[in-house]
């Protein structure tokens, strides 16, 4: 298989590879990806540069090989390697041996995230699923996020409407509240990849997707970003990575539903 950069790939595939990268240097822990690029990305990371990752079948078992997403080939046997029911998932969360990549509906400058409600939490305009595991996850283990529509509705100007996931906000960690295990790594969006490597953990652009400028990203973000001098372009998938994504991990092409009209990874190629 070829390590040569592909030329024909979709934005969903570019983002999948960017999502995989978040788990590169994690060693042996549970990789949990929610949504297609994060989930396929976790599998890709395990298949390629980090075989030590533990992943589940999305139900209750660890698997040594990822079952193809969507429709499985006839006779496919899931390669179970261990047991991970929900009760154990919380135990794993508390050990810190997990890196989850989730898709909140709002994120603020501190990396605080919201999956609960839009508007006044007592009488919200929109009600979502609830806190889910965000509070426990974010104060116990590594977290990254995926945002399919990078804009000011997601990257809000002030704090998120409901803080479900904790962030680097010292005002919320007073009087012995422990921020030590808050460990936010990467945010992959449809425009760029960011981390918290700016001054005082400011959100920072670390790579721009093909054809995207820093100014564009900044204009779509409700707070100032670091990384204005970023020149790195998000690396395109290699031919080998594309083959794994397309033939092995997601043969049903569920990733095509990530973005409206499933655009190409490099918009300059769109005709």
């Amino acid at each position: 298989m070829s390590d040569q950069a592909a030329t024909d790939y979709t934005l969903a595939e570019l983002c999948t590879v960017a999502c995989a990268e978040v788990w590169r240097d994690n060693g042996e822990l549970q990789a949990s990806g929610f949504g297609f690029p994060p989930r396929i990305g976790a599998c890709l990371a395990k298949y390629t540069f980090n075989p030590e990752l533990q992943i589940t079948d999305g139900e209750a078992f660890f698997v040594s090989e990822t079952a193809p997403l969507g429709k499985r080939p006839p006779g496919y046997q899931v390669k179970y390697s261990g047991y991970a029911p929900y009760a154990r998932t919380f135990d794993i969360v508390y050990t810190g041996k997990r890196h989850a990549m989730t898709g909140p509906v709002q994120i603020d400058r501190y990396g605080q995230s919201n999956l609960c409600a839009i508007g006044d939490p007592k009488k919200p305009k929109a009600a979502l699923q609830g806190m889910r595991g965000f509070p426990g996850n974010t104060v116990n283990h590594i977290n990254s996020m995926f945002v399919p529509v990078h804009g000011k509705r997601v990257f809000v100007e002030g704090e998120v409407d409901v803080v479900s996931g904790a962030g680097y906000n010292p005002a919320r960690f007073t009087d012995g509240r422990k921020m030590d295990y808050v460990d936010l790594r990467f945010i992959v969006t449809n425009l760029c990849v960011m981390d918290f490597g700016g001054p005082n953990r400011q959100m920072r652009v670390v790579s721009l997707h093909p054809g995207v400028t820093f100014d564009h990203v900044q204009a779509e973000t409700g707070f100032p970003l670091a990384g204005a001098d970023c020149t790195k372009v998000t690396p395109p998938p290699t031919e080998a990575q594309l083959k794994l994504i397309r033939d092995v991990i997601d043969p049903s092409n569920l990733r095509a539903t990530t973005f409206k009209d499933n655009p190409p990874g490099d918009p300059r190629k769109a005709q």
Binding site: C116, T138, N169
Partner: peptide
Amino acid sequence: PTRAGIGTDVEKL
């Protein structure tokens, strides 16, 4: 006791 909820709006709400 739990750390879950610390630093979030679980406390306030």
